[in-house]
């Protein structure tokens, strides 16, 4: 077992989760994501798997775990779309890596930090998806609709805050 000095934020506030929670929360997020737009197409604006990715990344504070969690959740999302597998996987693994890296440096328990994190990562994912589709896949006619993505980021942030509070109960200090 690794020796801990408990002198860094990473060691002080690094959490783990029960395996069932690790599995069921992303799965539940994906399930809700595919079923909610059926009730109202406006709910397609939300990205619950992204919120789950950010939560696990900043809570674990391990960039490797964040990268892998983001990639797996993104790949599962891609499998349910008609896009090539890897579009969401790439975007979310970058978000997971960035979330874990930032989580090491700042207090992610703070409410305002969480607002900024969710808003920022939602916008970051929109830009990444645009870049992947426009330049990597070469899809013509792709435009980044800034207002649309701004509203999406705000909606994700509004949903993420209560979700984070709820998921905080499942944290275990390492």
């Amino acid at each position: 077992m690794a020796t801990r000095s408990y002198t860094s934020r990473r060691e002080l506030e690094q959490y783990s989760f029960h395996p069932a929670m690790t599995l069921l929360v992303p799965l539940g997020a994906i399930l809700l994501q595919v079923m909610l737009p059926k009730l109202s197409w406006r709910l397609g604006l939300l990205d619950l798997p992204l919120i789950a990715t950010i939560f696990f990344a900043v809570a674990r504070r391990s960039p490797v775990a964040g990268t892998l969690t983001g990639a797996l959740i993104g790949l599962a999302q891609d499998a349910l779309t008609n896009q090539p597998i890897g579009v969401n996987g790439m975007a979310k693994c970058v978000v997971g890596y960035a979330g874990a890296s930032i989580g090491v440096r700042v207090d992610v328990e703070n409410l305002s930090t969480r607002v900024l994190l969710n808003f920022g990562f939602s916008m970051m994912q929109s830009v990444l998806l645009f870049l992947i589709q426009r330049y990597l896949l070469g899809i013509p006619g792709m435009h980044l609709l800034w207002l649309h993505e701004l509203i999406r980021a705000l909606a994700n942030t509004a949903v993420a805050l209560p979700l984070f509070l709820m998921l905080d109960r499942g944290k275990r200090m390492i």
């Binding site: 960039p63 990639a71 090539p84 597998i85 996987g89 790439m90 970058v94």
Partner: peptide, 22 residues
């Protein structure tokens, strides 16, 4: 550079997978 290398490896794998599919 373990963290960055893992990120690059995962991204590279997915980029190759995308290229193969396209």
């Amino acid at each position: 550079y373990k963290n960055a290398l893992v990120l690059i490896a995962v991204l590279l794998a997915q980029t190759i997978a995308l290229a193969v599919q396209v």
